[in-house]
Amino acid sequence: MTERVMIVTGGSRGIGAATARLGAKAGYAVVVNYASNEAAAKAVVADIEAGGGTAIAVKGDVGVEADIVALFEAADRLGPLAALVNNAGVVDAVAPVAEMSADRLDRMFRINITGSFLCAREAVKRMSTARGGQGGAIVNLSSAAAKLGLGGARVDYAASKGAIDTFTVGLAKELAGEGIRVTAVRPGIIATDIHASGGEPDRVEEIAPSLPMRRAGTAEEVARAILWLLSDEASYSTGTIIDVSGGRSILP
């Protein structure tokens, strides 16, 4: 019960899994949250334990408030919460706004926006020095889409990440005097399976040649930025949003 605890939502794969592994190496006890892929989450936990670290896998949908509360209660059993990485998110198939259903929009915003708000709420209750906590840091996952808009493709996803940018700045100002720093990263095209979940399994290979660096990024490259923002090396940074996009500034 003496270890600093990190919660990584959506921690079973991609950027979340890379962040969980690096977090353990940095000395955190890691809570690997997952929505459905138990085997992948347990594999991350096994990797961390094999390296001498502490980790647990906790199932929970960040689109469901009760699951979020249960996630944080599970983390409480490991020790004091020091870091939250709001990584869990979804994309959907390419579609113009004229063809988007209310159900699609509800799912997108409930998971990508409301889930991040509620996870931050629970983290603040535990970390705020004004509430008896020891302080800490929150890193939100935005996206280059927040600036690109993704017109004709995924405006809903882009809008959800634009909301995360605003949320990050506002929450940072709200908590600056309570010992909690709030920052974000904006990944660009990263080689993870999120593209397949949106119906485009070959998207990375198709887009990579048109990117400024002529390649996609890796989950580990994004995770390193997240761990820096969580660390004492970033002690005077709050409200900061770092682009990890290989120079991508326009939609290919």
Rank of each mutant, 00 (worst) to 15 (best):
M127R: 02
K147S: 12
A145V: 11
G27D: 07
N33W: 10
R203D: 06
R248Y: 13
V30M: 09
I180R: 00
G170I: 04
A39M: 03
P212K: 08
I7P: 14
P209W: 05
V62Y: 10
N112T: 14
E206N: 04
A88I: 08
L230I: 09
K42V: 14
T9M: 04
E49N: 02
M127W: 01
R107A: 15
A57Y: 06
N112S: 15
R13A: 15
E178I: 00
K59V: 01
D106C: 02
L118C: 06
V31K: 07
R224D: 15
V58F: 11
V64I: 14
A158F: 02
N140Q: 05
E49Y: 00
A234T: 09
V8Y: 05
G198V: 12
V91P: 01
A146W: 02
N112A: 14
L22D: 12
A176F: 06
G198E: 14
G152N: 08
V5K: 10
I111R: 05
M6Y: 07
A55K: 05
Y236H: 11
G217T: 02
L118R: 10
A234V: 07
R13W: 10
R21T: 11
V244M: 05
I111P: 03
V91E: 14
A184N: 07
G152W: 01
R203M: 10
E3I: 01
R248K: 12
E122A: 10
I226Y: 03
V155H: 01
R186F: 05
A43D: 15
A191H: 12
S143T: 09
I242F: 02
A41G: 02
V94R: 05
A191P: 05
N37L: 13
D232L: 05
E174V: 01
S12W: 02
Y157K: 03
A75S: 11
A223I: 11
L171E: 14
I164P: 07
A82K: 09
A145F: 04
A216H: 07
K147L: 10
R4L: 13
M127D: 15
G217H: 04
L118M: 09
L211H: 06
N86H: 04
T168N: 10
I250S: 06
G132I: 01
V139P: 14
N37A: 15
V5H: 09
A82V: 00
H195P: 00
N87K: 06
I48K: 03
A40C: 01
E122G: 10
I164T: 02
S160Y: 00
R77G: 15
T192S: 08
S231W: 08
E178V: 00
S237N: 08
G89E: 12
I241T: 13
V69Y: 01
G247C: 02
G239I: 02
R110I: 00
V32Q: 03
A17T: 07
T192H: 06
